[in-house]
Nucleic acid binder design. Structure first.
Lengths: 311, 311
DNA sequence: CTGAAAGCGCTAACAT
DNA sequence: ATGTTAGCGCTTTCAG
């Protein structure tokens, strides 16, 4: 039945046919009980509205389905107790592995739950203090790319709009932006820091762009922040890129399909998915030994939203 | 252990304490095998990028978690084979029930898979020809509400922008819009019909609004269609609501947070979640007998995007 | 290469 | 009110 090696072709086919005729459905619970493997992989992401995670989940689901695994997702909306609950459920349900990017990376209870988690853990761009396979994004190189691109176009005043969440991406981006500015010989100025990536920033962006000496370029987070930024620009009658240049952090359908298309920092999603599946499968099969920590860079997708500074 | 009735308080507590001290984790697979119930509920939605489904999934997950169920989601991105695969996986994995809003409602293979599905099915706004509990949305009343609202403001030429998908919402909305127009004594005119709700409509909207006698109002689907419509309006320098009135079909963070906030047709999500959970739980517990078919209306959230017609 | 037997960890049914 | 027993449907192991 299960493609075991060393079975006569004839027998195999006879069995398969009989199974089909009888409408036989293998029972996953019995299988899991006996084989001590649920063939279930859990994902815990902070935010289902972030297109990165949605797309990633879709790809992972596809890729892992090929290997016979079912992928489960939980989104915590950043709520601590939902994250704890999700990890507990993953443990109870006997996930064969989990992939996590929680909204809380230092909470002691989360750390403790993860330390005694009974299956392999893959951590995605979070500085959680546990031994686990990990992939982090290179936010410093990314900001160098974005700021460098704008500096080369003559922009000297750049407005960053990233949320100030307490996880790695938020923490790193601000430091990385400042470093990149200094690296380009520029001085960081005003900034907009929404509480979460899903906080609208209409008012704040409008205020930051209404002064006399307004920034000539922006680097903007690609979730809710980008729509409300575009809303503010339309309201101020500022055209992209004639009046202001724009780079999105994280690529999305919105950035690609906007008119004009918006230059964006993009992660190579297929590399991301490959790294995660390769690692997770190796762990499940017991092939991995050393903990793996990799860094993934962003690429700058140059589109039509940046232009030489008018200032 | 399991809160069974008729156990001495003392015994119960002793057991609970021992369990905690030993770090006992019940095994979900064994439980599922023995009790013939996985306590798993599967959702199959056509589109994870539709905020209705994302929000619904979040609420369902919360609500069903209280009852001890784990909610699983699969998005098919409208692909037929992914939908078939998802249903098969749900069957294999012994879901206790499934909630479905697939992108294909008439495909014979899908119908056949659902007919012999071994657990209760709840159908969400789809005309799938099977016997199953069902909740459908009242698209006719919704369009009456939206068109009526605009007609009362003096609008006579209204541009509808809904996708022309082959499922109930798409099929109904076009008919409902035409009926509502005639009901208000108006004549349907130009329309934009993107292939899917995720198709950008910048060009088509721009074209439709560039004629001499342009529509003074629009009714626009609330997914990717709304951002690209706003993009087109900004590009044409048309202000909402001064130059054109706007109603979104389906509420979203974007509609609420936009400046000005966009009037939207909203579903009462808590009623939606309650109906689904109540029905699904009753089925699982064997309490339901008759197939239930309910209709849920939309409410018109009047916000600042509509104004008396200037024409 | 194939058939038979044991048992994964629970819960339902029954006996006490 | 508590203790005991059988067996859910598979896979693993061992014997033929």
């Amino acid at each position: 039945m299960n493609e075991a090696p060393g079975v006569m072709e004839q027998t195999r086919e006879a069995v398969q046919r009989a199974a089909r005729e009888l409408g036989y459905q293998p029972n996953a619970a019995a299988r899991a009980l006996r084989s001590r493997s649920s063939r279930l992989i859990g994902c815990l992401f902070s935010d289902l509205e972030n297109p990165l995670y949605t797309r990633l989940f879709n790809s992972l689901q596809d890729r892992l389905a090929d290997e016979g695994f079912v992928t489960l997702i939980t989104a915590s909306a950043g709520k601590l107790d939902r994250e704890k609950q999700a990890i507990s459920i993953f443990a109870e349900r006997g996930m064969d592995a989990i992939v996590i990017a929680p909204g809380h990376q230092q909470d002691p209870e989360i750390v403790q739950l993860l330390e005694k988690f009974p299956a392999p853990i893959f951590v995605l761009d979070r500085d959680i203090p546990i031994q686990a396979d990990r992939l982090v994004f290179d936010h410093f190189a990314a900001m160098d790319l974005a700021v460098g691109h704008l500096a080369k176009l003559g922009h000297r005043s750049i407005l960053p709009v990233f949320s100030h969440q307490n996880t790695r991406p938020g923490l790193m981006r601000h430091a990385a932006f400042d470093a990149a500015m200094r690296g380009a010989g520029l001085t960081p100025g005003a900034r907009v820091e929404p509480e979460t990536p899903n906080t609208p920033v209409f008012r704040e962006v409008q205020a930051a762009l209404s002064c006399d000496d307004r920034p000539t370029a922006m680097i903007v987070q690609g979730t809710h922040v980008l729509p409300s930024t575009l809303n503010a620009l339309a309201n101020l009658r500022l055209r992209v890129p004639e009046d202001i240049s724009l780079i999105a952090v994280g690529d999305s359908a919105l950035a690609e399909e906007h008119v004009p298309p918006i230059t964006a920092l993009r992660l190579d999603r297929s590399a991301l998915v490959e790294e995660i599946t390769a690692r997770v499968l190796a762990r499940i099969r017991g092939q991995a030994t050393e903990v793996s920590e990799k860094v993934l860079g962003y690429q700058l997708m140059e589109r039509a939203s940046c232009r030489r500074s008018i200032a």
